[in-house]
Design a protein around this nucleic acid. Structure first.
Length: 423
DNA sequence: TCTGGGGTCCTAGGACCC
DNA sequence: TCTGGGGTCCTAGGACCC
């Protein structure tokens, strides 16, 4: 069996953990640069002001009208609470995978007959209650025979009347009843587009998708959707390692706090992204054979959309930040254009392989310095990202994110520690 | 004043070469 | 000289997720 634990509107819930004064008010959290709404608490959703990814400036007045609390993304806070959440959840099963900042899969092993002493229903409740008691985050817990069914159960736990945060699919009856109440786009892996095409075939609910012929689905869609059909019927297609497989591509991109036109700033930003992506790459013990480096204007700007990317191939697969930085520097002159107001840039590390299977080149000896990189990663993981960085990232970065409504760093800054008045 | 998220995977098709 | 088949590499964009 598999379980999926997932925090209800994670970012908004995190904001409420250390600030009891906003617990009964509508809370929305904005994306980087305060661009869009990315999370809204239940109260805000009920008031109709919590639509995901609408631009903030479009709904600002509406939010003010209902006296909503608006917060910038406080990523440091969410990461810390996420870590606590994962620690609690992982106690409940022999295997666990962090799936995203607010979600983890638990796996109870191959024996399909295994049932915890307290029963699945109670087990799920225990997870939920422990997380609430220890981290003060509300979660939904779904349990099922495959990752896709665990996801479906989780959907039921949070969205379907009567489940109250916990749902278990451990019988044909439960499976059919939950899938019948889900629209096909609620199924994991079925988005808007595929959903519309399935609708055209008369497949409207999760159960109808489960009952479709896998072969036909594969022909009309893809092998991925076919796997989804099997998983909805209890046949595991996503093996445990694939639930969180090593990445084949790693990106770091961001829009700037304000438009930039200075080539040095663009270079600093690209170097920073290269270092972020490189650290992620080394964390999964990977090497990259190629890299893409790009910058764009805003698609909303009047002067036409400018997008330029450079593809860089490495003679020897690498995970050394210095190689990635050198590639960025080399790319800058062909990306930069002095008339363009740059809005966004980033890098992608491509063609990633395990560092154990690197093919060395007799004529291009690797110039990597794994020990130096290890040292860099160690210091940064201990003292925070960017504590030690390469000179190419610049000293003064002028493109910092806009975060006008940032909550205090309750968990990562001594000066921001919450104070409790007694008496 | 002016505002518009970030990440990963997959594939069709263009560019280029033999 | 010109045509055309076929392979490889890269880009752009579609699709999904949170």
């Amino acid at each position: 069996m598999y379980a999926l634990c997932d925090v209800n509107s994670m970012y908004a819930s995190c904001e409420k953990v250390f600030d009891p004064s906003i617990r009964k008010r509508p809370v929305v959290v904005l994306t980087n640069n305060d661009g869009c709404i990315c999370a809204a608490c239940g109260i805000a959703k009920k008031m109709g002001v919590g639509k995901k990814f609408v631009p903030f400036f479009e709904v600002r007045e509406q939010l003010e009208a209902v006296n909503a609390v608006v917060r910038s993304s406080n990523y440091e806070l969410y990461a810390e609470l996420s870590e606590r959440l994962m620690t609690v959840c992982s106690r409940f099963a022999p295997h666990s995978h962090i799936y995203s900042i607010d979600e983890c899969f638990l796996y109870y092993g191959l024996h399909s007959a295994y049932v915890p002493a307290e029963g699945w229903q109670q087990h799920a409740s225990n997870i939920r209650r422990s997380v609430w008691r220890e981290v003060r985050l509300p979660i939904g817990v779904g349990i099922g025979a495959t990752p896709t069914l665990a996801k479906a159960a989780n959907h039921a736990a949070k969205k379907i009347e009567g489940y109250r945060g916990v749902a278990v699919i451990d019988s044909e009856g439960a499976r059919k009843s939950i899938l019948a109440k889900m629209s096909v786009t609620d199924v994991w892996g079925i988005g808007r587009r595929i959903g519309a095409r399935l609708n055209d075939l008369g497949i409207m609910t999760g159960l109808q998708l489960a009952n479709a012929k896998p072969g036909i689905i594969r022909k009309q869609f893809s092998i991925l959707i076919e796997s989804t059909v099997y998983e909805l019927n209890g046949v595991v297609k996503l093996n445990w390692d694939e639930v969180r497989a090593a990445k084949k591509e790693i990106y770091s991109t961001r829009s700037f706090g304000q438009r930039i036109m200075d080539p040095d700033q663009l270079k600093f930003a690209l170097a920073t992204h290269a270092e972020i992506a490189a650290a992620k790459l080394r964390k999964q013990n990977g090497t990259a054979k190629a890299m893409t480096i790009f910058a764009t204007s805003s698609p909303h700007d009047a002067n036409g959309y400018y997008k330029k990317s450079v593809f860089h191939k490495f003679a020897v697969p690498t995970s050394d930040s210095r190689m990635f930085l050198a590639a960025c520097s080399a790319a800058l002159s062909s990306i930069y254009c002095k008339e363009v107001r740059f809005y966004r840039c980033g890098v992608g590390l491509l063609d990633i392989a395990d560092n154990k299977s690197v093919q060395f080149d007799l004529f291009n000896p690797s110039q990597d310095d794994p020990k130096l990189m290890q040292c860099l990663d160690l210091i940064n993981s201990k003292y925070g990202r960017g504590t030690l960085h390469l000179a190419g990232q610049g000293i003064e970065q002028k493109f910092a994110m806009r975060r006008e409504f940032l909550s205090p760093h309750y968990t990562t800054r001594w000066s921001d520690l919450p104070r409790i008045k007694c008496g």
